[in-house]
Write a protein that binds this DNA or RNA. Sequence first.
DNA 1: GAAAATAGATACAGATCTGTCTACATAACT
DNA 2: AGTTATGTAGACAGATCTGTATCTATTTTC
Lengths: 185, 185
Amino acid sequence: MKRSEIRDHLLDTAIALFNKRGFHAAGIDLIIAEAKVAKTTLYRHFPTKEALILAALKRRDEFGRGEMRKFVETRASDPRERLLVTFDYLEAWFATDSFKGCPFISAAGEHGEADDPVFQAAVHHKRKVLAYFRELAVAAGYGDADDIAREINLLHEGAVAVAQIARETSSAQFAKKMARRLLAT
Amino acid sequence: MKRSEIRDHLLDTAIALFNKRGFHAAGIDLIIAEAKVAKTTLYRHFPTKEALILAALKRRDEFGRGEMRKFVETRASDPRERLLVTFDYLEAWFATDSFKGCPFISAAGEHGEADDPVFQAAVHHKRKVLAYFRELAVAAGYGDADDIAREINLLHEGAVAVAQIARETSSAQFAKKMARRLLAT
DNA sequence: GAAAATAGATACAGATCTGTCTACATAACT
DNA sequence: AGTTATGTAGACAGATCTGTATCTATTTTC
């Protein structure tokens, strides 16, 4: 396998296994076996497991937010509607086989110390997502864009947590209806 | 230490360490050291680590729901108000030093397979909490008590997730205001 | 095409994990 | 008081974990 591909392949494999088994339970040996790559290779790209976790979270963050943006932009042009369409993105995510809750919440659960770089990666991701909602709320012309963004964000988090445990997609549309009613007030 | 006390003491120590470090990262040796108990003693009470985890989650479930009930019942008598007071309970929980997000969401993150007993324990807890909200909604005389309960529940989950990452208590009151507006429609 | 960097395969070190075993001390119950 | 159950202490086994070292094969790059 070419060097240019292998790093991303390793990260994708790691993301999938961290998601499925958890960050501690998914060991290096499992990751290299799944990726069909030698251990030496992994350690040439990432000096430690923590570095691998951080790189995986970074990739997951950028990919996930990019996907949500694309999804939203192709389904609605009205900024107000776009805020609601984010819940349809959630629904599509929940419907995938690999959905096991938010990887950043799980990462924060396993690395809960405030000064842990993994926890900080989760904080960074959540801040970026909130900023996106605020961006949409501003574009929609809301005077209290900050509050609107926080509301959408809180509903997202709630829908994800419910879907993680109940293992069904309906919480996305349920949260969407709540959002619609709140935006109407 | 008396036998009757030691089991609960072990469970409380385990709960605290699982909460702080995560279920995989908190090892048996750490738990017995913190509890100041011999390893033999722990394994006389719990045959495996998984059994300890399950017993700890069961205790956490019963304790947490009992505390919320007590909190709510002492602060409001009107059933409608009680639904809102549950968010004040959240706020008090968030304000504790040990708050690191919902232990059951974290447990589900580390044991995400649907047939894993630990995951099932999380499902059980969430069902019970939802049933409590429904009980309050029924007492409040709402015709659509199921939907009201789901809304309160989703707002709770959202507030917990936000508080876990942002490390502040304000999401509880923020969710409470959202709940108030939703209940008014 | 040659030189340098990287991948593969695998053994290994050292730490840590769960769970067991042994030997002795203490508490509880008859 | 004496028997039984339980606690303490710690060594130990066996598995597993992260990370390193060695050596060969393959890519990349100049």
